[in-house]
Simulated assay, not measured.
Amino acid sequence: MDYKASGAPKGPKGQPRHQEHNAFGGKNPSNKRATKEELLAKMKANAEKTSDGAAKD
């Protein structure tokens, strides 16, 4: 008897079994990645805050 051929076939390797509910690019419209311009603006605002705080000391 060929025992190797018996049983359920193996699934593809490296594939997730399910989609995460909060994965990027999913159905949830509130879960979007920020654009490069938005990130740069945020970084510049934070840099201004820290440089203003350091100048007062």
Rank of each mutant, 00 (worst) to 15 (best):
A41N: 13
T35V: 05
L40M: 06
G53K: 01
L39Y: 02
E48K: 11
A41Y: 01
P16H: 11
K4H: 07
K10R: 14
E37D: 15
A23D: 13
K49M: 04
G7K: 05
M43P: 09
P9S: 11
N22D: 15
M43A: 15
H18V: 04
G53E: 08
P29T: 00
K42P: 00
L39T: 04
N31A: 11
E37R: 11
E37L: 13
P12E: 08
Q15C: 09
K56G: 00
P29N: 10
G53F: 02
M1V: 15
K36E: 06
A8H: 05
E48S: 02
A5H: 02
A47W: 03
T50H: 13
Q15K: 13
Q15L: 11
A5M: 10
K36A: 08
K44G: 04
A8M: 02
S51D: 06
E48N: 10
G11V: 02
K4W: 04
D52P: 04
N31E: 11
G25K: 12
A23N: 07
A5G: 13
K44V: 03
E48Y: 10
A47G: 14
K27H: 12
A45C: 00
G14C: 09
E38S: 02
G14I: 02
Q19W: 15
S51W: 02
Q15S: 03
S6Y: 10
E20F: 07
E38F: 05
N46T: 08
P29A: 02
K36R: 13
E37F: 07
K32V: 14
K42L: 08
K10Y: 01
A47F: 08
R17A: 12
T35D: 08
S6E: 04
L39N: 02
K4T: 09
A23T: 12
R17V: 12
A41W: 08
S6K: 11
Q19A: 10
L40G: 02
L39H: 02
K44M: 03
H21E: 15
K10E: 09
Q15V: 14
S6F: 03
R17L: 15
K42M: 01
F24A: 04
E37V: 13
T35W: 10
D2V: 03
K32A: 05
S51Q: 09
A45P: 00
K32G: 00
K10G: 06
R33I: 13
A55G: 07
K13L: 12
G14S: 01
A55V: 00
T50R: 12
P12C: 00
S30F: 14
K32N: 05
G7Y: 00
Y3Q: 04
N22L: 14
D2H: 09
K56P: 07
A45F: 05
A23I: 01
H18K: 12
L40H: 03
K32Y: 08
S6D: 13
T35M: 09
L39F: 05
G25M: 04
S30E: 15
G11I: 07
P16A: 06
D57V: 07
N31G: 00
R17F: 10
E37T: 14
S6A: 14
